[in-house]
Amino acid sequence: MYIADQTWPELGDYVAESSLAVVPLGSTEQHGPHLPLATDHLIAEALAREAADRTGFLCTPTVNVGVSPHHRQFHGTMWVDPPQFRDYVESMTRNLAYHGVDRVVFVNAHGGNVQYLREVGRRLRDDGTMYAIEWMWDESIPDLVTDLFDHPGPHGGPKETSMIMHIARDLVREGELESARDGGVPDLSDDHLREHGARTFYDAVENSGNGVFGDQTDASPEAGEELFEAATDQLVHLLSWLDDQPIDDLLAPAHVDPQPGSRR
């Protein structure tokens, strides 16, 4: 159920019966010469909408711009700074709580958002507002990703390329797959990331001239469909599990000492 397509009485009926919502989030940032800047938010929205359709749970509009300053050297990348992103997502999620939602899954497709979504979830849980957790699609199916691709890459690689081939193939510049591979870093190893144990870079361009990693020529729409179905199944299972949990079991436990700070 997509919230923006409903009327307010219909949504009143929904929260009278259910208290769970999914919130898709991504980014608008470079994904190499072969993929659109929309890659992350297209994936997040497609997965969230499909899981909501299969389960009947509520899905909100997508947060399209995330924490992406590490891609800023590439034309068109948009970003918000972490405090503003965190506060915006928290404020929007509190709207849902006001209307009766007490559990949320952030359906996330951008690694730069993860830390801050976890912080939002902790804030909402610690003050007793609701239980909100972050879910990242590729982390739900790691074995399938490694089975399908020798060099999946953490950004703009064949896993994301395959997903966009399945979701919106017309947006993939398929003639650029070889140049994406050859101008990027097909196999990202620890040698690219650390010097004597220290992480010495801040931005993607410091490791990859065209901003992407992995072997994009391994991508296919068939692999994308397999990834999409497997990730959707995992998300559906997560939503069903979360819906079954008593809210008191999800919120922050009480202090282990019923009288913290007292002297005996």
Rank of each mutant, 00 (worst) to 15 (best):
P83M: 04
S179V: 14
S179A: 15
T77K: 11
G128T: 05
H70W: 13
D138Q: 15
G76I: 03
T93P: 06
V89T: 00
G76T: 04
D170R: 08
R103V: 00
A48F: 09
E119Y: 02
D81T: 13
F74T: 11
H99R: 03
T62G: 09
E176K: 15
P154M: 09
V107E: 07
G175M: 02
P142T: 13
G156Y: 08
E174T: 15
D40A: 10
D126M: 00
G156L: 08
A44P: 13
H166F: 11
E139I: 03
R173A: 11
V104R: 02
S68R: 01
I43C: 02
E176D: 14
G153F: 05
W137S: 12
K159F: 07
N113S: 06
F85W: 07
V114H: 03
I141L: 07
H151D: 14
H41Q: 14
A52M: 10
L42F: 12
H99A: 04
T55D: 02
V67Y: 13
G175P: 02
L144P: 08
D40Q: 09
F74Q: 10
G157H: 01
F149D: 12
G175I: 01
E160M: 14
D40K: 10
F85Y: 15
H75Q: 02
A48Y: 08
R72A: 14
G157M: 01
I167R: 07
D40F: 03
T39N: 03
T60Y: 10
T93H: 09
W135G: 13
V65K: 12
A52L: 08
T93D: 07
V89R: 00
R181W: 12
R72E: 13
V120E: 01
L35T: 05
W135R: 15
G112P: 07
N64W: 08
V101Y: 11
W137L: 10
P152T: 10
V114Y: 04
T62Y: 09
T77Y: 09
C59E: 10
H110N: 05
H99Q: 07
E119L: 08
R169K: 09
S162W: 12
F149P: 09
V145F: 13
D126K: 00
H70N: 14
T39M: 03
V145A: 11
T60N: 03
A46H: 15
Y98M: 10
A132W: 10
F85R: 03
V105R: 06
V80I: 15
M136L: 15
R94E: 04
E134Y: 05
A44H: 10
I133W: 03
R72V: 10
Y98G: 13
D147M: 08
T146D: 15
D40T: 08
G153V: 05
T161N: 04
A109K: 02
E176A: 15
L144I: 08
N108Q: 04
H75T: 03
D81F: 14
L96Q: 02
F85P: 07
L35N: 04
P142Q: 13
A97I: 01
M163C: 05
L35A: 04
S179Y: 11
V172Q: 05
H99W: 06
T146K: 15
G56I: 04
E134P: 02
M78D: 05
T129V: 05
T93E: 07
D143F: 15
W79N: 10
G100I: 07
